[in-house]
Design a protein around this nucleic acid. Sequence first.
RNA 1: GGGGAGUUGGCAGAGGGGCUUAUUGCAUCAGACUGUAAAUCUGCGAAGUGGCGUUAACGGCACCAUUCGUGAGUUCGAAUCUCACACUCCCCG
Length: 375
Amino acid sequence: MRFELLVQDTQSSARLGRISTDHGEILTPVFMPVGTAGTVKAVSQQQLEELGAEIILSNTYHLYLRPGHELIYGLGGLHEFISWNRPILTDSGGFQVFSHSQLRNITEEGVRFRSHLDGSAHFLSPEIAMEIQMCLGADIIMALDECTPYPSDFLATRESMERTIRWARRSKEAFQQVVTRRPSHGQWLFGIGQGGIYPELRRLCLDQLLDIEFPGYAMGGLSVGEPKPVMHEMVSRSTERLPAERPRYLMGVGTPADLVECISLGVDMFDCVMPTRNGRNGWLFTRSGHIVIKNARFAADQGPIDSQCRCAVCRRYNRAYLRHLYQSNEVLGSMLNTYHNLYFYLDMVREIRDAIASQKWTNYLKEFKARQETG
RNA sequence: GGGGAGUUGGCAGAGGGGCUUAUUGCAUCAGACUGUAAAUCUGCGAAGUGGCGUUAACGGCACCAUUCGUGAGUUCGAAUCUCACACUCCCCG
């Protein structure tokens, strides 16, 4: 496992890099489609390969509940189980600590959850999160953190952030112990910075994570309702603190504009449910903004989703048909919409890498912003 | 020919004297969605006409009258009770 910085943009913090894993290389900036339960909803692994997805994300909490990490370990690990030979990143369950606030109880030791599937009680600690993720065998795994909700006052945010640091330390210790007990292929454990919307807390958190030392660092707890400029400031404060030679991962972000903005600020990795979830809900990305395919105005529209898009869906199907599929609640609608949206994201990130590689990032930025304004 | 059941918003279907401009579901239309409890969730309207007010608005909003097959009646008050008519379905000949 290693990360190489290939190109550093001279006008901004944007950069091009390469992560090498046992399951292949990832060029950064990278967008990672979200496949929570071992599947990127509505697309097959074959289609993901076709789309050029370099790495996908999966989830500790969901796979632990069903089918169970021991089962997956016994079946040869997550890659084997889901038939995906490229890299995988698993999230620790930290986000579920946040989003299942009704069903959980946080203590210093860990989080007590009630399963959203059957109500049964479960416990997740940094140690357990490591054990599960090491059974799953993803290439990159995440420390258990507490995704601080927005808004949270300074004291509550600090308390939560400090616990995240303690959990990060325990995550790393547990990780090292499991590695010696159960040697597997190379895995990387990333630390996650929290600190809400308070720059000094963000900084404090990252400093401590840097002390613990991780091969990569994530920024968490952003895009949870705070204003955009605040999010950008937090990202900016974080990336300028982080070492250039380690990958930086902005968790759960975001819109195409968020990606562009944050790549400029030096972020290397992104994941977001937006292309997949919004696709299933009829929201489709185009170069000039989005369209809502279920709208009546597309009922007889014979054009493709995006006339400039070269994806298989845009080459073959028109808006009228896609609207019909949505209206009829046909699974093919979800499949085609998801396929297009993922292509849009992955292709955009490919273009961005090309732009950075050829020192045309500033141009790209200008063009992107002009497109947003006309669209 | 005889007997029975029924007719409520785009569809289905509640409501059996005042709280009903009318429950609910689906459909329609629109919106939301950022480390996925999501093929989810939210909202709208049902429908017109007339009056009055407001608004930059052909549109929007607020209120009033009428509105549950049609017409007439009982009642302070009717989708709800009575009568007539029309239509639909079922059973028997």
